[in-house]
Design a protein around this nucleic acid. Structure first.
Lengths: 340, 340
DNA sequence: CTGAAAGCGCTTACAG
DNA sequence: CTGAAAGCGCTTACAG
C-alpha cells in the first residue's frame, strides 16, 4: 500500500492483468493461497497491483467463495457493559480468523419485533456464513425461516433449543448452588432475587435455578422482577426491597448491571454498609465489577470461551445437536460477608 | 419469510424467474425501488420469491451498485464505555439508513501498527463506501494510501487535518474554559491534570487546552500522564498525586474512565470525601458518570450529533475541507464543590 | 412494461 | 504453469 496515484474508481483485476501482460486468471491465482503460478508471473502481477493500488474485491469473491462471506452479529444496547464485552471479544476472535463481521443493532427500530425481523432479513441478504444472535429473543418462526433459507444460526443464551440451530449457553445451575451457599455462610436468612422483566430466556432460567436452590436450602426468598436489564432497574429494586421492615440480608442479581444499581441505592439512599448490612452477588463479571466502587462478588461469564466456540462452529459444516454448555467461574470479591 | 422448505443453497433470481415464468430482468426490477414492472408480473415474482425463500444477494448487487456496499468502522477496545457508546449510536444510525456496517477490531493484533494496517486493507478489500476510524491514530501515510485507492475516509477526534479526508472533532476549547472556572469557583488553588500516555491527538489537544486555561487563570497545575486510557490508570494517577503533601484540591481528567479510577482511589485508599476534600471533573459523560457511585460532573461527548454527521457525509459525494467541530455540553453533577 | 444481451469483478474446471 | 471460456448472481442500457 504505497502510492500517490489518485483514482476515481478502484482498479480491477483486468487492469492489473493488462499492465502485467498476463491473463486475467493469472491475477486471480496470484491472490489465492496455494494456486499454481510461477514465481515470475507472480512477481509481475504483484508489481502491477502495487502500481495500480489494486486490492482483490472480496465482495465479488464472496459470490462464489464461501469463506469471504461475512459473519453477522445481531444485538441491541451494544453499549451495555455485557454486550460491549461480548462484542469486543467476538470481533477480535473473528478478526484473527480473517473473517469479515457485520454488526446489526436492533436497538433503534420502531418495535422490538421489527428490529429482529429486519436484522435477519439483512443477514440473509448479505449471505452471511453464519448469524450469531447475541441478545434478544428472535421469534421461533423467524429463526425457522432463516434456517429454511439455508442460513447457519448460532444463538447465545437462549433456553429452549430450536431444531437445526447451534446453541451456546452458560451452565449456571452449579453457580447458583454456589451463590446460595455463599449467602448461607454469610449468615443470610432472608434473601431476595432481583431480575429484569426483559424476558430473556437465559435470565429467566438463571432466576429459576437460584430460586430452586434457595428454597432447597430453606432461605426465605423474595422475588423482585421488573424493567429492562439496566442500572436504573437495580436502583428501583433496592428502593422497594429495602424500604419496609424485614429487609433482605442478601440479594442475588441475575446481572452485574442490576447489582450496581442495588448497591448504589443501598449505600446512598439507605445508608447501608456492604457487606456488613447487606450481601450482594452479581453475574457476568463485567469490567466495573472489579472497580473500587463496587468490588462485586460475581460469576465470570465465559466470554472468551464463547468466542472460541463460535469461531469453531462457523467454519465447520455441521452444527452440534445438543446445546454447548460453558461454565462460569466464581469471582470472590468484597460484597459478601466472609463468614457467619 | 415463511416456509419450511429446506435448501442446501439459497435460491437465485434465475430460479425465481423460471418459477414465475418471467425474465431474469423482471425479477431484478421487482426488487429495485421505482423500476418499471407491471403490477401483475410483480405479484407473480413476489409469489415465486416467497415460495423459494428468495432474498436479493446484496453481495452481488454491491459489485455494481454503490449503495449496497458496506460502511467500515475501525476501532479498538470496543468494550471501553466510550467506544461502546459511540459504536452503539453509530450502528443504530447506519441501520436506520439501511446501511451494512462492518466492524474491524484492531485490538487483538500483534502490534498496534499491524492492526490498523490490516484493518484498512480489509476496508479496501470489501469496497466500503466509507471508512470511519473511531479511535487510534492511523499513520498518515497509510491513510493517504487509502485515499489514493479511492476510499472515502472519516476520522474522529484526530487533531491534525490530513488532505482529502473528513474530520469530525469535539470542540473542547470552550469546555476547558468552563472546567477551569468551575474549579476556581469551588475555591481550588492547586489543581492537577490527568491524562493517558496513549498519544491520541484528541486527548493531547484537550489536555493542552486545559493547561492553557489553567495557567491563564493563575492556578498551580501538576500534569500527570501515563498508561493507557483506562480505569487503572486513573487509580495510579491518584495514588501518585495524593500521596505527598500539597495535594491538589481539584483534578481534571481528560476522560471519565480516568476520573472513575481517580475517585475510587481517593475515596477508598485515601479516605477522602468528594467534593469536600477534592473536586473532580471528567469528560465524555459515559453511562457510569450518572451512576450513584460517581455522580460525576463532566462534559457530554456529542455522540448522537457525531453519528448524524457521519451519516450525512457517507451519502454525499464530496467531503468538506475543514474539520467539523461539534460542541460538548456541560453535565453538572456532584463531584465539584458548588461555591467557594 | 418487457426480454435478450452485455456488463460488474471475481473463480474455476478445462485444454494445452 | 498458463490462458480462453463458462460460471457466480446481480444490474442496466437497448430494442421492441
Amino acid at each position: 500500500m504505497s502510492g500517490t496515484r489518485l483514482q476515481s474508481h478502484p482498479a480491477s483485476a483486468a487492469e492489473v492483468a493488462r499492465l502485467a501482460g498476463v491473463s486475467r486468471s493469472a491475477v486471480s491465482r496470484t491472490f489465492i493461497e496455494g494456486a499454481s503460478v510461477s514465481a515470475e508471473t507472480r512477481a509481475r502481477v504483484l508489481a502491477a497491483a502495487e502500481a495500480l493500488n489494486y486490492h482483490v474485491n472480496h465482495l465479488a469473491r464472496g459470490i462464489s467463495k464461501q469463506d469471504s462471506r461475512p459473519v453477522c452479529l445481531i444485538g441491541a444496547t451494544l453499549d451495555a457493559p455485557f454486550h460491549a464485552r461480548m462484542l469486543d471479544r467476538l470481533t477480535q476472535a473473528l478478526q484473527r480468523a480473517r473473517r469479515m463481521v457485520m454488526v446489526i443493532n436492533t436497538g433503534g427500530a420502531d418495535g422490538p419485533g421489527a428490529g429482529v425481523h429486519q436484522a435477519l432479513e439483512h443477514a440473509l441478504s448479505y449471505r452471511a456464513v453464519a448469524t450469531v444472535v447475541l441478545s434478544g429473543t428472535p421469534p421461533a418462526d423467524l429463526v425457522a425461516a432463516c434456517v429454511a433459507a439455508g442460513q447457519r444460526m448460532i444463538l447465545l443464551n437462549r433456553a429452549d433449543p430450536l431444531p437445526g440451530i447451534c446453541h451456546i449457553r452458560v451452565d449456571d445451575a452449579p453457580a447458583m448452588r454456589d451463590a446460595v451457599s455463599m449467602l448461607l455462610r454469610a449468615g443470610v436468612r432472608r434473601c431476595a432475587l432481583v431480575t429484569s422483566a426483559s424476558g430473556t430466556p437465559a435470565l429467566a432460567q438463571r432466576a429459576a435455578h437460584f430460586r430452586r436452590e434457595a428454597e432447597a436450602a430453606g432461605l426465605s426468598l423474595r422475588v423482585w422482577q421488573g424493567g429492562p436489564t439496566a442500572y436504573a432497574t437495580g436502583q428501583r429494586a433496592a428502593r422497594e426491597l429495602l424500604a419496609g421492615a424485614d429487609r433482605p440480608e442478601g440479594i442475588f442479581c441475575v446481572t452485574d448491571l442490576l447489582a450496581f444499581g442495588v448497591i448504589d441505592a443501598a449505600r446512598h439512599e439507605f445508608r447501608m454498609e456492604i457487606p456488613r448490612d447487606l450481601s450482594v452477588i452479581g453475574f457476568d463479571d463485567v469490567a466495573q465489577a472489579s472497580w473500587g466502587a463496587y468490588d462485586l462478588t460475581t460469576f465470570a461469564h465465559p466470554f472468551d470461551a464463547i468466542a472460541e466456540e463460535i469461531l469453531l462452529r462457523i467454519g465447520s459444516t455441521e452444527l452440534p445437536e445438543a446445546p454447548i454448555l460453558l461454565p462460569p467461574t466464581l469471582c470472590w470479591r468484597g460484597t459478601v460477608r466472609p463468614e457467619g
